[in-house]
Design a binder for these strands. Structure first.
Lengths: 158, 158
DNA sequence: ATTTAATTTGAATTTTATTCTTATAGATAC
DNA sequence: GTATCTATAAGAATAAAATTCAAATTAAAT
């Protein structure tokens, strides 16, 4: 009971594998694939959602279609006590910020930002970053070309 | 004609906004939201898929549920002529590699890798990276904690 | 203005989702 | 051993949704 809430069996993993690649697959199709009744599959999927194993269903939208062609990583140093998350809260609140990681080493945070162009990136730095008082310095790396970009996990067989 | 294939109107953007946040929303619900007949919405969604505006529908799976708790960024220098994409092809082929970016500046590539633990990260470096001949050096940054992580785009009103 | 093309609608049909009852299997307690 | 509790799955029934398609509307182009 304490454990079963976290343990994923072969069927769960199979469902996850299917939905990770196609979140709009029908329950009926999943059922056919895993060899179960649709009602049983529904039960499992709901449990996976409830347990937050599945966090969200998202449509991956081509950034170029929205003319968002600028991608940058910003390494940020901040002067705040360890465990303090003041800076990250500010960073995470910026809509164009897709990722905020607390990293080991000199640069405290690594932030991924997607915007239209260099001008809009500068805007974000001016309007947001420069107003976060704990930030000491930033080092921006511009992405010239993205070869691969996905959140897909490697799901084991069992 | 040449343009209409790329132009997204207010309704398209509204659909994208809905599906980005919940890819399993029903056609009927989208129709209700945007004030159209379900069949018309279906038409648009199919066109968005076909035009690759919507690239994929994915279930975002909690990495912790699969015990994949190691996240790292690897900055990679390679000695290959400009425009050569030999190295990136090798990097992108690694399943645990979620992102490969060609970046401006000294470090040619920035790679995001997700694994179980430090041991499995080392395995990838040993089994894959060290066997790519064009790689000169790597600098690995370990993520201690992820505060925000999403691919969500900021979708304009119109 | 008139033709052409592209979208949208609405009705009809097929397919799914969903609910609920029943059945099965495993675990635990008595 | 039997009973009981729990979890899971199946199957049937119903509600809802997806999908198709002809007709109508709208927009675009000449």
């Amino acid at each position: 009971m304490l454990d079963s809430e976290l343990i994923l069996d072969k069927t769960d993993l199979q469902i996850l594998r299917l939905m990770q690649v196609n979140a709009r697959i029908s329950n009926a199709d999943i059922a056919r694939e895993v060899g179960m009744a649709p009602s049983g599959v529904l039960e499992r999927v709901k449990k996976l959602e409830q347990k937050k194993v599945i966090m969200q269903y998202t449509a991956a939208i081509n950034p170029a279609a929205l003319k968002q062609n600028m991608l940058a990583f910003i390494a940020i140093k901040a002067n705040e006590g360890p465990g303090n998350i003041e800076t990250t809260k500010h960073l995470a609140a910026i809509p164009e910020v897709q990722e905020v990681h607390h990293v080991a080493g000199d640069d405290c945070y690594l932030v991924k930002v997607r915007t239209y162009d260099s001008a809009s990136l500068v805007n974000i730095m001016r309007n947001y970053l420069s107003k976060i008082p704990t930030i000491i310095s930033t080092r921006t790396t511009i992405v010239l070309e993205t070869v691969k970009e996905q959140q897909r996990l490697v799901i084991p067989e069992a």
